[in-house]
């Protein structure tokens, strides 16, 4: 009988389910940040974008009854915030990290201000694919419930990888990110390439917000993001600015969220907070091991962190 197998099978299934449920926002935000950083600018403000995306998706889904319109609205909100960041962070004498922090405040302010009316109502949620329907074992069924947004995100990763590697525009982005002066000499408009990279990156992370509010956990609340937007910056370095590796990193971080509760559900309770902090500790250790003062990280855009 299913109930007896539940105890030992439950943990890996809960982690797999948690990974599939929880990694979508990480994936979108890290892809967005990856695109942004490839162009040589950093966007710390994605936390604000994520919140605004989550709020607008939920609000529009509730008001129109169509969750997909909500996703679209999140994207548009992301474009707007991204445009502010893209324009401001490229003005002379303005630090992109500073604009990012200010955008966290502004973005979360906008999200909380307009989101007050939407904390209470229940908005229609995105449909889900039941990949576990063949099984009659409920934990497996629930673990394999996959959001179409996650599939879209998984599809974007290789496309972005291909975009950077094999397209003319991808080359432009990399050129601008590695050496703006050389790109300028090639006749590329550094401003516009970065503008597009940042706004589209912001668009993607706002969709990540929509994953939070319209899929999992599927509510709008002011605490909906547990720092996914900020973590994305670390995640991208973790993934060495490779979109495909962003995918693996996002799955890892999504899964890490599920480990704590899953282990508690079978009785492992010690060091709860350190368990919750494990993704951060893990990332830091990986960075310490893999970095070197002699060379920059492979794949690191040359202009990143400079004010070029």
């Amino acid at each position: 009988m299913a109930a007896e197998t539940a105890d030992w099978l439950g943990v890996p299934l809960a982690i797999i389910g948690g990974t599939l449920r929880g990694s979508a926002p990480f994936l979108f935000v890290s892809l967005g940040e990856c695109l942004t950083e490839k162009s040589g600018k950093i966007n710390l403000g994605l936390e604000g974008t994520l919140l605004t995306g989550a709020m607008s998706a939920y609000a529009v889904s509730y008001l129109t009854g169509s969750p997909w319109l909500g996703v679209l609205a999140a994207g548009v909100a992301g474009l707007c915030l991204g445009a502010i960041h893209a324009w401001l962070s490229q003005r002379s004498g303005v630090s992109d990290v500073a604009v990012g922090i200010a955008m966290i405040v502004f973005g979360s302010g906008i999200a909380f201000f307009f989101g007050k009316a939407f904390i209470q109502p229940q908005a229609p949620q995105l449909p889900i694919f039941e990949f576990g329907a063949w099984s009659n074992y409920p934990p497996l069924q629930s673990a394999l419930q996959v959001s179409p947004l996650l599939l879209i995100g998984i599809a974007i990763a290789p496309i972005m990888q291909w975009f950077f590697k094999s397209t003319r525009w991808g080359l432009y982005v990399r050129a601008v990110g590695d050496s703006p002066s050389a790109a300028r000499a090639m006749g590329i408009s550094v401003f516009w390439v970065r503008f597009l990279a940042i706004t589209i990156g912001s668009f993607l992370s706002a969709i990540g917000g929509a994953c939070l509010s319209l899929y999992y956990p599927g509510i709008w609340s002011e605490n909906i993001s547990s720092g996914q937007g900020l973590m994305a910056v670390a995640l991208v370095i973790f993934a060495r600015w490779q979109p495909m590796q962003c995918l693996w990193a996002a799955l890892l971080f999504g899964g890490a969220q599920a480990i704590g509760p899953a282990l508690q559900s079978v009785g492992v309770t010690s060091f709860r907070y350190l368990f919750n902090a494990s993704p951060y500790i893990f990332t830091l250790i990986i960075m310490i091991i893999t970095c070197s003062p002699k060379r920059t990280l492979a794949g690191s855009p040359g202009a990143l962190g400079t004010n070029e």
Binding site: I42, V97, V233, A234, I237, Y280, I281, M287, I288, S292
Partner: peptide, 11 residues
């Protein structure tokens, strides 16, 4: 170690 200080301090 050449670890990016923004990220490490955030973590």
């Amino acid at each position: 170690r050449g670890v990016n200080e923004t990220i490490s301090s955030l973590l």
